[in-house]
Amino acid sequence: MARIEINPKLCKGCLYCADVCPKKVIGVTDAVNAKGFQYAVPLHPENCVGCAMCAIMCPDAAIEVYK
């Protein structure tokens, strides 16, 4: 079972991860972090296949992938 962890402290909400995800796992909620960014969250974690494309694309190195 693959899963991703997005660190809300480091995310700036550019959503490159959501654009690149082939399974559309990632999205945003109303929650914001300490810097005021609407951070990305795995909305559909059950669909994750662990391809790590979101983590490779993330400029802020906020995503870690487990498989």
Binding site: M1, K12, G13, K35, A52, A55, C58, P59, D60, E64
Partner: peptide
């Protein structure tokens, strides 16, 4: 057994960086 296949590089500090959202600099 779950294994970490992609991690934040050890050479980076733990705090949020000062670049704008979407900037390629931190990448």
């Amino acid at each position: 057994m779950e294994e970490k296949i992609y991690k934040r590089p050890a050479g980076l500090q733990d705090n949020i960086n000062g670049y704008c959202p979407g900037c390629f600099h931190p990448g």
